[in-house]
């Protein structure tokens, strides 16, 4: 599987999902349990991606400059700094720590 296959299959599958919502009659996912699971899936996947992105190095877990950067990012989100500025600040913190260590 090349990266192009991954990009195309995932793009078509994800775009197709958007059409499903318009084609099927309202009902199934409006019910409480499926709607709740769909919401929580988004949260679980994003949290898992944060953990892997902040701690993973291949199959090892490594604590490095990413952790202080993530803490700074959380503090900035807490005081409602816009997304783009927070992402740039996180990159700057990690790059700064790496430059001096």
């Amino acid at each position: 599987m090349t990266l192009w296959h991954v990009v195309l299959v995932a793009s078509v599958a994800t775009a197709a999902l958007k059409f499903v919502g318009y084609l099927v009659p309202a009902g199934f996912l409006e019910r409480e349990r499926p709607a709740r699971i769909a919401d929580l899936l988004t949260i679980a996947l994003l949290a898992a991606l944060i953990a892997v992105q902040a701690l993973g190095a291949g199959q090892a877990l490594v604590v490095d400059a990413r952790i202080p950067a993530l803490i700074v990012a959380a503090a900035l989100y807490a005081v409602r700094v816009p997304f783009v500025l927070v992402v740039a600040a996180a990159a700057a913190v990690a790059a700064g720590i790496r430059a001096v260590t």
Binding site: K18, G27, L29, A38, D39
Partner: peptide, 10 residues
Amino acid sequence: LGLRNVVYGM
């Protein structure tokens, strides 16, 4: 992660 778009579509 795209599953929530089905709910939005409905």
